[in-house]
Design a protein around this nucleic acid. Sequence first.
DNA 1: TAAAATCATTTGTATATACAATTATTATTT
DNA 2: AAATAATAATTGTATATACAAATGATTTTA
Lengths: 140, 140
Amino acid sequence: MKTSESKFASCLYFTCNALARKVEKMAIECWKPVQLSPSHGYLLMMVLEDPGVGAGNIADNLQLKPSTVTRLLEKLEEKKLIVRITEGKQTTVFATNKAKQLLPALKKCVENFYNLYSEALGKQVSNSFVNNLHEISDKL
Amino acid sequence: MKTSESKFASCLYFTCNALARKVEKMAIECWKPVQLSPSHGYLLMMVLEDPGVGAGNIADNLQLKPSTVTRLLEKLEEKKLIVRITEGKQTTVFATNKAKQLLPALKKCVENFYNLYSEALGKQVSNSFVNNLHEISDKL
DNA sequence: TAAAATCATTTGTATATACAATTATTATTT
DNA sequence: AAATAATAATTGTATATACAAATGATTTTA
């Protein structure tokens, strides 16, 4: 059933969530080759590109709560992909060599995901849609 | 931090999820008066408007997996807001009197939520945005 | 400088959601 | 009619996420 055929088609809550779940599912599929969820993947890329980045900074950029970031970091640490270093009340994060070796594969995941949706929507449409999402989000 | 200022601002996964969480939060707030989550609220309204609706039909319309619908129904049953009747392999759902008395309050929640976002965005923009979400969702 | 307030992170707990496997029923095939 | 397949819902388990409370460190205030 298409989202537009649902009883709640006109509701932002419903429509937004349905789309987010669909997109999430596509992303999960794309990140399977590296055995990471999309959130873990994005977080790891952030650490690779910005060694020593702070936990708070990660939370801001990923727009997740600090507690959620802690949970993501825990798992990445278990997998030996990052290390956390606590200095005073701040925590900084570094990628391990294992993670560094993974970088090309991670980039491929991002690329594949981008191609997947931008081919389905058309590059033009998909870019302007993302911009539209920002505008809306900033107004709410 | 605005979503557009994040490192991942250009990514559909990130942008979509960030917006969905924001919208969800607004919706949760609006549904507080009836002490239900938005999903429970929408499900209950569906049952009130269509007594005897089947579980599968609910899943289709809410675009949730059957197992998720089962979980939502369990909770609504605990709260004595619905009853499930199993006939063969099908399950149908009815609202209790308690739920029927709640209907006006439920409608108010939907209305408040709609007003909240359509005032922030403008009625025009918000309606066309929802339509845009459908178009995108159907193409993915 | 001691006490209090603030701040960054973590921990305990709770949520909605989904997947995979299971159960129970109905439909199909042989 | 019996065996098999298909179907609808449920159950067990796992996920990401968030809130509230706790911890530990720094800064401000008295």
